[in-house]
Amino acid sequence: TTTLTYTDEEEARKAAEELKRRGITFTYTKRGGTWEIRIK
Protein backbone atom coordinates (compact mmCIF):
# COMPACT_ATOMS: atom_id res chain seq x y z
CA THR A 1 0.00 0.00 0.00
CA THR A 2 1.28 3.43 -0.93
CA THR A 3 -0.01 6.48 0.89
CA LEU A 4 0.24 9.94 -0.62
CA THR A 5 -0.43 12.86 1.71
CA TYR A 6 -1.38 16.34 0.56
CA THR A 7 -1.92 19.56 2.46
CA ASP A 8 -3.41 21.21 -0.62
CA GLU A 9 -6.88 20.04 -1.67
CA GLU A 10 -6.29 21.11 -5.28
CA GLU A 11 -3.16 18.94 -5.51
CA ALA A 12 -4.96 16.00 -3.93
CA ARG A 13 -7.83 16.30 -6.39
CA LYS A 14 -5.45 16.41 -9.36
CA ALA A 15 -3.66 13.31 -8.13
CA ALA A 16 -6.97 11.49 -7.64
CA GLU A 17 -8.11 12.37 -11.16
CA GLU A 18 -4.82 11.13 -12.59
CA LEU A 19 -5.15 7.80 -10.76
CA LYS A 20 -8.74 7.39 -11.97
CA ARG A 21 -7.58 8.02 -15.53
CA ARG A 22 -5.04 5.22 -15.16
CA GLY A 23 -7.64 2.87 -13.68
CA ILE A 24 -5.84 2.60 -10.35
CA THR A 25 -7.87 1.70 -7.25
CA PHE A 26 -7.45 4.04 -4.31
CA THR A 27 -9.20 5.46 -1.27
CA TYR A 28 -9.41 9.15 -0.54
CA THR A 29 -9.53 10.35 3.05
CA LYS A 30 -9.65 13.82 4.54
CA ARG A 31 -7.87 13.95 7.87
CA GLY A 32 -7.91 17.31 9.61
CA GLY A 33 -6.06 19.65 7.26
CA THR A 34 -4.59 16.92 5.07
CA TRP A 35 -5.88 14.64 2.34
CA GLU A 36 -4.66 11.07 2.06
CA ILE A 37 -4.72 8.97 -1.07
CA ARG A 38 -4.10 5.29 -0.38
CA ILE A 39 -3.22 3.18 -3.38
CA LYS A 40 -4.02 -0.51 -2.96
Results as ranks from 00 to 15, higher is better:
residue 32 G to K: 07
residue 27 T to K: 04
residue 9 E to I: 05
residue 20 K to I: 13
residue 23 G to P: 01
residue 40 K to D: 14
residue 18 E to I: 10
residue 5 T to V: 14
residue 2 T to G: 07
residue 10 E to Q: 13
residue 15 A to H: 06
residue 11 E to S: 13
residue 38 R to G: 04
residue 25 T to A: 14
residue 3 T to A: 04
residue 24 I to C: 05
residue 40 K to P: 14
residue 26 F to T: 01
residue 14 K to F: 07
residue 27 T to G: 03
residue 37 I to H: 00
residue 18 E to H: 07
residue 35 W to L: 02
residue 37 I to T: 00
residue 28 Y to I: 15
residue 27 T to M: 05
residue 14 K to V: 07
residue 28 Y to G: 02
residue 38 R to M: 13
residue 39 I to K: 01
residue 8 D to V: 11
residue 28 Y to D: 01
residue 33 G to M: 12
residue 1 T to Q: 12
residue 4 L to S: 03
residue 12 A to S: 05
residue 28 Y to A: 04
residue 28 Y to P: 01
residue 29 T to P: 00
residue 5 T to N: 05
residue 29 T to S: 09
residue 23 G to D: 03
residue 37 I to V: 03
residue 13 R to M: 14
residue 21 R to K: 11
residue 31 R to A: 09
residue 39 I to N: 01
residue 19 L to G: 00
residue 13 R to S: 06
residue 7 T to D: 09
residue 4 L to K: 04
residue 36 E to H: 05
residue 37 I to K: 00
residue 2 T to Y: 12
residue 10 E to D: 12
residue 18 E to T: 07
residue 6 Y to S: 01
residue 35 W to Y: 10
residue 25 T to N: 12
residue 27 T to R: 04
residue 28 Y to V: 15
residue 33 G to K: 11
residue 38 R to Y: 09
residue 18 E to M: 09
residue 7 T to C: 08
residue 14 K to P: 01
residue 21 R to F: 06
residue 37 I to C: 00
residue 16 A to D: 01
residue 31 R to T: 13
residue 19 L to I: 02
residue 24 I to R: 03
residue 39 I to P: 02
residue 31 R to F: 10
residue 38 R to P: 00
residue 10 E to K: 13
residue 19 L to V: 01
residue 1 T to V: 14
residue 3 T to K: 07
residue 12 A to F: 15
residue 22 R to F: 05
residue 23 G to A: 03
residue 38 R to H: 13
residue 3 T to H: 05
residue 22 R to T: 04
residue 20 K to R: 14
residue 4 L to C: 13
residue 24 I to K: 03
residue 11 E to W: 04
residue 32 G to L: 07
residue 12 A to W: 10
residue 31 R to K: 13
residue 14 K to I: 08
residue 34 T to W: 12
residue 13 R to D: 05
residue 36 E to F: 12
residue 9 E to H: 05
residue 37 I to F: 03
residue 18 E to K: 05
residue 26 F to D: 00
residue 39 I to D: 00
residue 39 I to A: 02
residue 13 R to F: 07
residue 10 E to H: 12
residue 21 R to H: 06
residue 19 L to H: 01
residue 19 L to N: 01
residue 5 T to Y: 15
residue 17 E to I: 11
residue 8 D to P: 01
residue 19 L to R: 00
residue 32 G to W: 04
residue 5 T to F: 14
residue 17 E to K: 10
residue 35 W to V: 08
residue 5 T to W: 12
residue 17 E to N: 10
residue 26 F to K: 00
residue 40 K to F: 15
residue 29 T to R: 10
residue 10 E to S: 13
residue 11 E to C: 07
residue 21 R to Y: 05
residue 4 L to D: 02
residue 23 G to N: 06
residue 29 T to E: 13
residue 4 L to V: 06
residue 23 G to L: 03
residue 20 K to N: 09
residue 6 Y to G: 02
residue 22 R to N: 08
residue 31 R to W: 06
residue 35 W to I: 13
residue 40 K to N: 14
residue 18 E to F: 10
residue 40 K to M: 15
residue 34 T to N: 10
residue 37 I to W: 00
residue 26 F to W: 01
residue 12 A to N: 00
residue 14 K to H: 09
residue 22 R to P: 01
residue 12 A to D: 00
residue 15 A to T: 09
residue 6 Y to A: 01
residue 5 T to L: 13
residue 9 E to G: 06
residue 16 A to E: 02
residue 37 I to G: 00
